[in-house]
Simulated assay, not measured.
Amino acid sequence: MHTKTILIVDDEPRIRQGIKKTLENWANGQYLILSAAGGEEAIEIIEANKISLLITDIRMPEMSGLYLLETLKKQERNPVVIIISAYSEFAYAQQALRLGVVNYLLKPVSKQKLIEAVEQAVQVEQKQTRTGLIQKVVDEKLADMNNYNDGNKIYSKSIIDAILFIDERFNMEITLKQVAAHVHLNSSYFSALFKEQTNVTFSEYLTRIRLQHAKNLLMTSTLPVTEIAEKVGYNTSKYFIKLFKQYEGMTPNAYRKGNENDF
């Protein structure tokens, strides 16, 4: 099962096949390596496959590599890109960089330089993927609240301990009374103190933590909603779906469907 795909676009068969062979040896089966003889063929492949890394020549007869990148940008397809060209004019490099190219290599490219560039590009792609995933699943209210070291916030030790206790046990049956006992406070006092310092109730915090983990599972796994509900601490999927819709404005299945093409 290939998790990532690399596409090579070059109108010169010898160069195209040489790059493909080099990368297949380097990838050792971990990446699917595809190739195209021109821009139009590349677009067809990209429309049918999720491309993580695009390696393309700049000058090709039917469609230049730069025009290919501009076309993909208009289609909101944004693979990480390496440009390979025999033309070292600064204008090409400038335009390539403006289009988000991470590396610009001049022919002839050695195997070592090619592999170094690809490894760097893979790191960029992985970082973009992680960043995108974090941005999609993060609960901004939680992110703001959980910044214990923010100089503008002063959480008592009891509240910090309570938050850590909840974070470790969100997938279990957990009550306000249990958490209050853990931090050696009266339930009523703990409830008021938690709301005063965090600006959310205990119940809302627990719900938001569970739903954040659920969103992560919806985007990164194929687990059914009923199983995800159980994994984040809900006995019934019906209640989980109700809460998810209340906080996210859509059902878990709709959330998954809306993000399935991104990762």
Rank of each mutant, 00 (worst) to 15 (best):
K4L: 06
A143P: 02
T198H: 05
V9L: 04
R98M: 10
V122C: 05
L185F: 01
W26H: 07
A229I: 04
I134K: 15
L32I: 01
L105V: 14
L66T: 05
V183A: 07
Q246V: 00
H213Q: 08
Y87N: 14
N171F: 08
L23E: 02
V232P: 15
E173S: 14
T226I: 13
Q95L: 09
N78Y: 12
Q123W: 03
F190P: 00
T220G: 02
N253Y: 12
N261D: 14
V179I: 01
V102W: 09
K113Y: 11
I58D: 08
K50F: 10
G18D: 06
D11H: 02
L185Q: 08
G100N: 03
I19L: 06
V102G: 04
A117K: 05
L97R: 12
Y87D: 15
N152P: 02
L243Y: 15
I58R: 10
V200C: 10
L142T: 09
K73N: 04
L72T: 01
E227P: 11
N147R: 15
I82H: 10
L114A: 01
G233M: 07
D11M: 00
L193M: 04
T22D: 03
V81S: 14
I241V: 13
I15V: 15
A229K: 07
H184T: 09
K242A: 12
Q126V: 09
V138R: 15
L53Q: 13
Y67G: 01
D11K: 02
P252K: 03
T236V: 13
D11L: 00
T207D: 10
F194T: 01
F90G: 06
A181H: 09
L23K: 06
N171H: 13
E24S: 00
